[in-house]
C-alpha cells in the first residue's frame, strides 16, 4: 500500500445471484480527496460503496484502510471488533434517505452525541456542548438541539447527518446520493457545506451520485461505472470535458444544460 493512500481496493467483487453488483474493482483514495462514483442505476456504484464501507462482504479481492496514525487495517480478514471501532471513529456514512442515517425518535442533540457515547464519552454537559457546536457548524440553529429530526426540513436532516458523522472527526465519509432528495436551492447550500468541511477537516469523501453537475463542482476525481465495472476514471474536469469511453460520452452528452 502506498504510504499516502487512505483506502486501497484491489480486484474487489461483490456479485448478487443475478450477476449484478461490482466486479474486479481497483481503486485508491487519498486523504482530503473527494471522489465521485457515477453511473446509471444498476451500474454497481452503490454496491461498491456499501462494500467499501463494510456494509457488504466482498466475495473476493482485498481492501485496506490506513488510519490517521498511519496504521494499515485489512478490512476483509481483520477482526470484527477493530472494524466496528474504525466505523465509529474513522468513518462516516451519509445516506440518501435521512431516515436510514438518523434516529428519528430521539433529539437532534442525541443523534449527534451517539457516536461520542459509543466511544466512551459520558459527561452530559460535554456531549451537549459538542452537539450544539456541530449544529452551528452545519448551519442549524442550536436552539433546535432538543427537537426531533422529524420536525426538520429535508436539507436540515441531511446537514444533521453530516454533524452526526463528523463529530468524531472521521477521516473518510461515505455518501450515497446525499443530494438526491434535496431541492436544487437546498442542494447548493449542502455542496458548499461539504466543500468547506473537506477543507477544514482534511476529509476524504467517497460519494455516489448520478448528478454530473455535483461531481463537477465537488469532486477532485470521478470514477465511471457500467455493468459493475469501472470503465473510466480520472480528474473530474477531464472526464467531463474529454470523456474517452463510449458510455461516459453518452452520460456527458445527456446532461441537460440549465
Amino acid at each position: 500500500m502506498r504510504s499516502d493512500t487512505i483506502l486501497e481496493v484491489r480486484q474487489l467483487s461483490h456479485l448478487y445471484a443475478n450477476g449484478q453488483g461490482c466486479r474486479q474493482i481497483d481503486l485508491d483514495l487519498y486523504p482530503g480527496e473527494v471522489l465521485c462514483l457515477v453511473g446509471e442505476s444498476g451500474s454497481g456504484k452503490s454496491t461498491l460503496l456499501d462494500t467499501l464501507a463494510g456494509r457488504r462482504v466482498p466475495q473476493s479481492g482485498s481492501l485496506r484502510f490506513r488510519d490517521r496514525q498511519g496504521t494499515f487495517h485489512d478490512l476483509i480478514h481483520g477482526d470484527t471488533a477493530t472494524r466496528r471501532q474504525l466505523a465509529r471513529r474513522e468513518w462516516g456514512h451519509v445516506f440518501q434517505n435521512p431516515r436510514d442515517g438518523l434516529r428519528m425518535n430521539v433529539s437532534a442533540g442525541a443523534n449527534i452525541s451517539e457516536r461520542l457515547m459509543a466511544l466512551g464519552q459520558r459527561h452530559y454537559g460535554h456531549l451537549r456542548a459538542q452537539a450544539r457546536d456541530w449544529l452551528e457548524r452545519v448551519e442549524i440553529d442550536p436552539a433546535r438541539l432538543d427537537d426531533l429530526p422529524a420536525s426538520f426540513s429535508g436539507g436540515m436532516q441531511q446537514r444533521l447527518q453530516i454533524a452526526r458523522n463528523l463529530v468524531t472527526a472521521p477521516s473518510l465519509v461515505f455518501m450515497d446520493e446525499p443530494t438526491g432528495g434535496l431541492d436544487v436551492s437546498v442542494q447548493a447550500r449542502f455542496l458548499d457545506l461539504v466543500r468547506r468541511l473537506v477543507h477544514e477537516h482534511g476529509l476524504a469523501i467517497l460519494m455516489v451520485t448520478h448528478d454530473l453537475g455535483v461531481a463537477r463542482l465537488l469532486a477532485h476525481r470521478t470514477v465511471v461505472m457500467q455493468h459493475g465495472r469501472i470503465v473510466e476514471s480520472g480528474l473530474t474536469d477531464q472526464i467531463l470535458d474529454d470523456p474517452q469511453h463510449a458510455y461516459t460520452q453518452l452520460l456527458v452528452s445527456s446532461i441537460v444544460q440549465a
Binding site: 480520472g234 480528474l235 474536469d237 477531464q238 470535458d241 474529454d242 474517452q244
Partner: peptide, 9 residues
C-alpha cells in the same frame, strides 16, 4: 490550452 492543462488527454 486544455491539453497543456491536462484537461484534454
Amino acid at each position: 490550452l486544455k491539453a497543456l492543462y491536462a484537461n484534454y488527454l
